[in-house]
């Protein structure tokens, strides 16, 4: 029996096939958990994110509904995982102190508090982000990892609202360039 495609599994999940959900879970646990962990910097919070994602998927309504126009299934899964993470960050943040500008980038950047493992050297993202100018690092941190709104970013960085989009785009683009360079040389 050949392995079912993601989409086939998704269709079965829509028909409330528990085994299909389990199979899909096994397939993506590592990727999604790693991602959530990176976003949340916390094991328990990352697990909460996983729960949220799979509950949405199982319910199959609203955000948990995949259509092929959304692109690759795995990208879509990562998108809803990112959204679930941002959502939880917001909820948790509501109880926490305001982002402090004096905090170093490292403190806010996900990943640094994690225990160093033998996988550490594969953390090319961390390295690539580090090579960016501070301002670009900050854009990625605030937009991508913390999911802030345009207005919040403008306020925190004290820049005009109209310039935020351009700066975020530039930062993401530069990051991508660095990743592509490194990707070819260090991995595998």
């Amino acid at each position: 029996m050949s392995k079912p495609t993601d989409y086939e599994l998704y269709e079965q999940i829509r028909n409330k096939d528990k085994t299909a959900l389990e199979t899909l879970y096994n397939r993506y646990e590592k990727l999604l958990y790693s991602f959530a962990h990176r976003m949340m910097k916390d094991q328990q919070a990352a697990e909460e994110v996983m729960q949220d994602v799979f509950i949405k998927l199982w319910r199959g309504k609203g955000a948990g509904q995949y259509v092929k126009e959304r692109g690759k299934f795995s990208s879509w899964l990562l998108t809803i995982t990112r959204n679930a993470s941002i959502d939880l960050i917001r909820k948790k943040k509501a109880q926490e102190v305001e982002w402090d500008q004096r905090d170093s980038m490292n403190e806010e950047m996900p990943g640094v508090e994690e225990v160093v493992t033998d996988k550490e050297e594969r953390d090319q993202l961390r390295k690539a982000i580090d090579t960016l100018p501070d301002e670009q690092q900050r854009m990625i941190c605030l937009f991508y990892f913390q999911g802030l709104s345009q207005r919040e970013i403008a306020e925190k960085c004290e820049i005009p609202l109209g310039t935020v989009k351009g700066r975020v785009r530039l930062a993401l683009k530069k990051l991508r360039e660095h990743l592509d360079e490194k990707g070819g040389t260090t991995d595998e």
Partner: peptide
């Protein structure tokens, strides 16, 4: 641009019993 980022993230080991 955003979609390319997760591939470069460090792997994390899921906690026991999470599944």
């Amino acid at each position: 641009l955003m979609g390319g980022i997760p591939a470069y993230m460090k792997e994390a080991t899921p906690p026991a019993g999470m599944r």
